[in-house]
Write a protein that binds this DNA or RNA. Sequence first.
DNA 1: GCACACTACTGTGCAATGCGCGGTAGTGGC
DNA 2: GCCACTACCGCGCATTGCACAGTAGTGTGC
Lengths: 108, 108
Amino acid sequence: MDSSQLLKGVLDLAVLAVLDERDGYGYDVVRRLREAGLVEVGDASVYGTLRRLYKAGALTSYVMASDEGPHRKYYGLNETGRSMYAAQARTWNSFVATMASLLKEGRG
Amino acid sequence: MDSSQLLKGVLDLAVLAVLDERDGYGYDVVRRLREAGLVEVGDASVYGTLRRLYKAGALTSYVMASDEGPHRKYYGLNETGRSMYAAQARTWNSFVATMASLLKEGRG
DNA sequence: GCACACTACTGTGCAATGCGCGGTAGTGGC
DNA sequence: GCCACTACCGCGCATTGCACAGTAGTGTGC
């Protein structure tokens, strides 16, 4: 198992988490995820996730010019996105708890 | 997000965990996972995972007759399986920790 | 002795999603 | 002009969980 498989279904949550902290554009989200420890995340995955979340109505989007390169497409959470974030965080936490109890039994 | 996506890449670990506790056959593993809280796990997924892990050399396999139905194909961890289990558990735990720090930042 | 339910395993095809790779563009340094 | 870095997008692939259908053994009710 490399963590690429672990990301399945959780990348949405991770992206929602960084955007909940503050709006960001694709390249920036990639950097923030990597700094947070998700070093193996691919840029294409993040762009794809952002587009998917936007299409799902969870994100707002606005374009801004930049001094240091091409334009940046910023994304931010809207109400739908925030409740999606909360719901997914809950699901994730209970899932983690379930896994924790499973793993403990064989080792405690 | 339904937890089916969360299972991606983690079902291996979950199956290794229940087999580490004690040998089991497919149907039994499904039941134990569901009792542990993974209620949405599909039987075909578990059988597929068992076959995959067996093919990867992580499991031993032996067939036993049963009083209450057809034969049962038992699976158990071998050395490879145990080290795979330990490695995946470590990866999982550090991944969970990374996610936890990500989620915390946006909420206090 | 036949239909049915429950146990137990298998195969096929599908859908979701992360990724590698390559392509397009803008800005600045040499 | 060429290259590096920033920034974004599209294509096709691999993995993997699942629904569904099928095979088979055992016991129950009639």
